[in-house]
Simulated scan of single mutants.
Amino acid sequence: MYALDSDKAVVLFSGGQDSAIALAWALQRFDWVETIGFDYGQRHAVELGARTALRRELTRDFSAFAARLGPDTLVDLGGLGRLSETALTRDAEIAVAENGLPTTFVPGRNLAFLVFAAALAYRRGAGALVAGMCQVDYSGYPDCREEALRAQIEAIRLGMDAAFRLETPVMHLSKAESWRLAEKIGGRRLVDLINEHSHSCYRGVRATRHEWGYGCGDCPACDLRAKGWAAYVADEGGETATGKAK
């Protein structure tokens, strides 16, 4: 198999809460980290700007991260958005479809992301792919499940003849637990940085600031984030910008 550097990683970085925490996690563990993002015509394209802001703030506030963070690559996957025609890629109602999946599900999205991330990692000789997928309190997307991702990374390993490994640090964490992971990595400063600069709202609303971050406040992504933040600050160990929650 093609020799890869186990100390180098490529992070699938959307600009959302989970991928931002995954990026911080990777920066704490790998000597060299690059990020890759995807423009697939998403309605919440404001997340692409969040990616830039998060990278800037992480390197400004954490000198160790600045020394390890390499370049960012943005891949145009507009064809995926045009093929899928979901509530994330066109003006359509966000609801549960007849097949039981939310209309925000973009078929094959995470699977495609992994292929492109692996292609970049292959070029860089990076042995690890790091992603923020989570199957604990997610929106019902089948390509967020550990089983699906494990199968995909095995196909990539075989197809590229390279010993990639996939790291998903928030896979088995609730949103509240992921905030606690961020706090463990970088303290309250990192929690507040990610809360302020990441973006999760499916409608791309960045004008309204809630305690849990920016968003419309009623889409599924905002609902998950709000509930996770409330559970985090209710915990005795949770902290906010104003100090202890209890």
Rank of each mutant, 00 (worst) to 15 (best):
Y2N: 14
A3Q: 14
L4K: 02
L4I: 01
S6A: 15
K8D: 07
A9C: 06
Q17V: 13
Q17R: 14
D18A: 11
A20I: 03
I21D: 01
I21L: 01
A22N: 03
A22E: 02
L23H: 10
L23A: 12
A24R: 07
W25F: 06
A26K: 00
Q28L: 09
Q28I: 05
R29Q: 07
D31R: 15
V33G: 00
I36F: 08
G37I: 02
F38E: 02
R43C: 08
A45C: 10
V46A: 15
L48Q: 11
L48P: 00
G49W: 01
A53W: 07
R55L: 13
R55G: 00
R55E: 10
E57N: 10
E57V: 08
L58V: 12
L58N: 10
R60T: 14
D61R: 14
A67L: 15
L69C: 04
L69W: 05
G70Y: 03
D72L: 06
L74P: 04
D76F: 05
L77D: 01
L80S: 09
L83H: 11
T86A: 08
A87M: 12
L88N: 06
L88H: 01
L88T: 05
T89K: 07
R90P: 08
A95D: 05
E98S: 12
E98I: 05
G100I: 11
L101P: 01
T103E: 03
T104I: 12
V106W: 10
P107S: 08
A112P: 02
L114C: 00
L114D: 00
F116C: 13
A119R: 13
A121C: 03
A121M: 04
A121E: 01
R124T: 08
V130Y: 06
C134Y: 00
D137H: 12
Y138P: 07
Y138T: 13
Y141G: 12
P142S: 10
R145F: 00
L149G: 04
E154P: 07
E154M: 12
I156S: 11
L158H: 06
G159E: 04
D161Q: 13
D161K: 13
A162M: 05
A163M: 03
A163H: 04
R165K: 13
R165D: 08
P169M: 05
V170L: 06
H172M: 12
L173A: 01
L173Q: 02
E177P: 09
E177H: 09
E177D: 13
W179R: 00
R180W: 09
L181R: 07
A182K: 04
E183V: 10
E183C: 08
K184N: 11
L190K: 05
L193V: 03
I194V: 15
H197W: 10
H199L: 15
T208D: 11
H210R: 09
W212A: 00
W212Y: 06
W212M: 03
G213Q: 01
Y214Q: 07
G215V: 04
W229D: 03
A230Q: 06
A230E: 06
V233K: 02
E236H: 12
T240K: 08
A241D: 13
K244A: 15
K244S: 13
A245F: 11
A245E: 13
K246M: 09
